[in-house]
């Protein structure tokens, strides 16, 4: 048995590597991406990728500074670089409540990959480091009243109110003194609003608990929260607004890039 595993395992690993490489080959061209960047991105994000473009003073929040390789919206653990797909996803969805609009119909897939490749050139981290393996998101249990009730207790246990407040309106005791990696003031999310920038579905919210939001005060609870607790917390947050989509049937998690047509 052990011998068989020893024979099969390298073969499997090889297969996985080949599959990984096949996907990895779908990369953008930074030279072509520069052209796209200078047309669509430079006015806010700046020529140097420092987030200090012409219109940057007029946006709240300010445009992302690409030079550190620090990104909030990722499928990867706390502190990790994002994947190319993570960066492309922001171009597709835009970011709700910010000046970052969707470029989904403006740019095709290849153009998006190209501009992602160019954006990565602003941070030396992409040359020496790789994104860590994606956060594993287990199947979402059904949204139920019991789950919401348990989730309210999870909200208390994990002291979410410290920043987000007792009523989850983003007004906790620490709310007024938060800054991001760039020293800009940043406020905790008002979770009752019913919209979360990176997506309102269960898996998207779950991912924020586990990965945290790099560059912001939102930490990772990967080492402290159990999957069951995290799902209950997702459902509690979703209970705070009728706008949130709710998985009433316990349907399988939608793939993250399964965007509606």
């Amino acid at each position: 048995m052990a011998t068989r595993i020893a024979t099969v395992l390298p073969a499997l690993v090889t297969l996985m590597l080949v599959a990984g490489n096949a996907r990895a080959q779908e990369v953008g061209d930074a030279t072509r991406g520069k052209v796209v960047y200078e047309q669509y991105c430079v006015l806010c994000h700046g020529e140097k990728g420092d987030g200090q473009g012409h219109f940057s003073q007029d946006t709240t929040p300010v445009p992302r500074d690409f030079r550190q390789g620090t990104y909030k919206w990722r499928t990867t653990p706390s502190g990790s670089l994002p994947t190319d797909a993570d960066l492309e996803r922001v171009l597709i969805t835009g970011l709700y409540g910010t000046s970052m609009s969707s470029l989904r119909t403006t740019l095709n897939h290849q153009q998006r990959l190209d501009v992602v490749a160019y954006i990565k050139t602003f941070s030396p981290r992409f040359k020496t480091d790789k994104p860590e393996p994606a956060i594993v998101i287990p199947p979402e249990p059904a949204y139920t009243a019991e789950s919401v009730k348990r989730g309210a207790d999870v909200y208390d246990k994990f002291n979410c109110a410290q920043c987000h407040g007792d009523g989850a309106e983003g007004d906790g005791p620490s709310a007024d003194d938060l800054t991001d990696d760039w020293g800009n003031p940043i406020v905790p999310y008002d979770l009752t609003e019913g919209h979360i920038k990176c997506g309102d579905g269960g898996p998207e919210i779950y991912r924020v608990f586990i990965g945290g939001l790099n560059g912001t005060p939102m930490p990772s609870f990967a080492d402290s929260i159990s999957p069951a607790e995290a799902w209950d917390l997702v459902h509690y947050i979703q209970s705070l607004s009728p706008t949130y989509p709710k998985n009433l049937t316990g349907a399988p998690n939608k793939p993250i890039d399964d965007f509606p047509p």
Binding site: Q68, G69, T70, P77, S78, G79, K157, F158, N159, C160, Q162, C163, D181, W182, G183, G212, N214, G215, T216, P217, M218, P219, S220, F221, D223, S224, I225
Partner: peptide, 27 residues
């Protein structure tokens, strides 16, 4: 017994290394 988060950053660039929640006493 209060929520802390331990958030190491590069001292020169402030770039986040990681950011870990310490939600309760004894964690």
């Amino acid at each position: 017994p209060v929520l802390h988060n331990t958030h190491p950053q590069n001292a020169e660039t402030n770039a986040t290394i990681y950011n870990i929640a310490l939600p309760y006493k004894g964690f």
